[in-house]
């Protein structure tokens, strides 16, 4: 299974991921990134690539 990992030290809450994959990423009212199940993998991969601070990565788990 694929999981999204957020590096909290690096995340700047730019919201680019939320624009690319709004079903998966949401900045909550505290500006903290919430990550759901990576349903649409293509959109998630785009979001990971688009992150301006490189805070997102995908890991494979069994």
């Amino acid at each position: 299974m694929t999981r999204v990992v957020v590096d909290r030290e690096v995340c700047m809450s730019a919201g680019v991921c939320e624009l690319e994959a709004p079903e998966v990423f949401e900045l909550d009212t505290a500006g903290r990134l919430q990550v759901g199940e990576p349903t649409d993998l293509t959109a998630v991969e785009t979001a990971v690539r688009a992150c301006p601070t490189g805070a997102l990565s995908l890991v494979e788990e069994d």
């Binding site: 700047m12 900045l27 500006g31």
Partner: peptide, 12 residues
């Protein structure tokens, strides 16, 4: 500061 501001500036 960016995190404080980002809270007021999320896409939603």
């Amino acid at each position: 500061i960016r995190r404080i501001v980002a809270k007021a500036f999320t896409p939603r």
